[in-house]
Structures are given as C-alpha cells and as structure tokens.
C-alpha cells in the first residue's frame, strides 16, 4: 500500500495514513492536533523527525506538498465578500490550475451541489451548511492526494452533517485520503481509523471497532473520555493498556 505520512515529532509521533483512507485525528483541546496538521500541510517545520506527505518530504519539498493537498477548516475557508464563482476561481488559481480546467470544474462542482443559482451570490449570504459543503468541494477541486479537514462540521444541522459525510465518502472512494478532526465523537465512528492524541502523543490508533473492543466501551466517546486526558480522570487507565503508538 502507498504510504502517505510517516510523521515523527519530538515527542515521537508516529503514524501512517493510507491512500483513500478516512483518518480521524482526535484529541482534547490543546493536545497538539493543530500543530500536527500545520506540520503535515507544510506550513510549519517539525523540530526533528521525518514527515512524508503525498510522497513528498515536508522539510525538503514543502511547496510540492502544498500543491498536492487540500485544506479546509470551520473558521475560515472562503472569502465572505467574494461570490461563489469568484472564490472557486481564486482557489483554482492558487492551486495552479489552468483557466479552462477551472471553468470546467466550476460547472461540475456547481451542478453536483445543486448550486447553479448560487454562483453569483456572495459567500456571506449563504447559509452555514451550504458554505461548508462548498468549502469542502473547493478544497478538493484540484484533485489533491490528501485533504485536511479541521472540524469541518461544527454547528451544522444533522441533515447537512450527513450530506457532508457522504461527500467525504465519495471523495475517499476516488482514492483521495481524508484527514479529519472533530469534536463530535459520534462522527469519529464514520472514519476508517482514528488516532487519539493526548499531550503531544498518540495514545490510541486503530479502527473504531477495535478501539471500542480494546477499551471495553460502547462508543468512541467512551474510549475518548477514558484516555484522552489521563491526568484528569479519577481512575486513569493503566499505562500498559494505553500504549498504542506504532
């Protein structure tokens, strides 16, 4: 199988993510998720260790990485004072796509989302759910090898949340890797595999089904509460059953 990441930070963060995989990256607030994503996307450098993303070395070829990844976060992704079409043009340009290709993809994208009528609307006039779906579509319009989604579904209604996950499934089925963080623990169950980070370390990494078995839990939420912040729980899990990093 193709290796997408082999990421070692100074606290020995080791993991691999595969092509077409939906990988859930979980952790308590301040566990180090954002730092890790910034390193993986070539925005900041790790102090030690080696990071390979989409086949490129993060230290030596950060620009190559940026061309081959997509990124979307809940807080900001699209320019509110540009129209839908203008945003698509802008991002297409940033991703280095040819004009003709951008036009072609814009059509496909708007049709797929049933967005025709919204093409000339300003982003600020769109409901949150539409914005999030559009932001995701834009993040993968250049067919990246991997897309990073940082809490993409915060605050959206349950129907939109599901439509969003179906878009994620569809993307993964096209062999694009999806790397996603979320605070909705039930969403973690949608992922092929999940990792749970605590204090800069990965304390668990496996399929949701395996993790639930391992920690004798009914849901990922239960697993998370048990291990995500060992210092804060009254009955910390013994070290022996916690070490799961590869």
């Amino acid at each position: 199988m193709k290796k997408f990441g082999n990421f070692v930070a100074n606290d020995n963060l080791n993991f691999e993510v595969y092509e077409g995989e939906i990988f859930g990256f979980l952790g308590a607030n301040g566990a180090g998720k954002t730092t890790a994503i910034r390193i993986l996307s070539g925005l900041s450098e790790s102090t030690s260790g080696e990071v390979i993303v989409a086949g490129y070395n993060a230290k030596k070829q950060p620009e190559q990485i940026k061309k081959n990844i997509g990124y979307m976060c809940q807080k900001f992704s699209l320019y509110a004072d540009l129209t839908v079409k203008e945003n698509i043009m802008l991002y297409g340009g940033i991703y280095g796509m040819r004009k003709a290709l951008i036009r072609e993809r814009t059509d496909i994208l708007l049709n797929k989302l049933n967005f025709r009528e919204y093409g000339d609307r300003f982003i600020s006039d769109l409901p949150l759910g539409l914005k999030q779906k559009l932001a995701f579509s834009v993040a993968v319009m250049h067919e990246p090898k991997i897309v990073f989604l940082d809490e993409p579904t915060g605050g959206v209604d349950p129907i939109t949340r599901r439509q969003f996950w179906e878009m994620i499934y569809e993307t993964a089925a096209r062999d694009i890797t999806v790397f996603v963080t979320t605070h909705y623990m039930d969403e973690a169950e949608y992922c092929d595999r999940i990792s749970i980070m605590s204090e800069g370390k990965i304390v668990a990494l496996d399929t949701p089904v395996e993790l639930k078995k391992q920690y004798d839990a009914e849901s990922v939420e239960e697993v998370f509460v048990k291990i995500a912040r060992p210092g804060n729980t009254p009955h910390p899990t013994p070290i022996s059953s916690r070490g799961e990093g590869e």
């Binding site: 308590a28 809490e151 915060g154 623990m185 998370f224 509460v225 995500a228």
Partner: peptide, 11 residues
C-alpha cells in the same frame, strides 16, 4: 460546550 472536547464536556 461548543468547540470543547468530549472530556471537558462530560465534566
């Protein structure tokens, strides 16, 4: 509890 992790939410 918006944007707060599951552990803090439970607390």
């Amino acid at each position: 509890t918006t944007g707060v992790d599951a552990v803090s939410r439970a607390e």
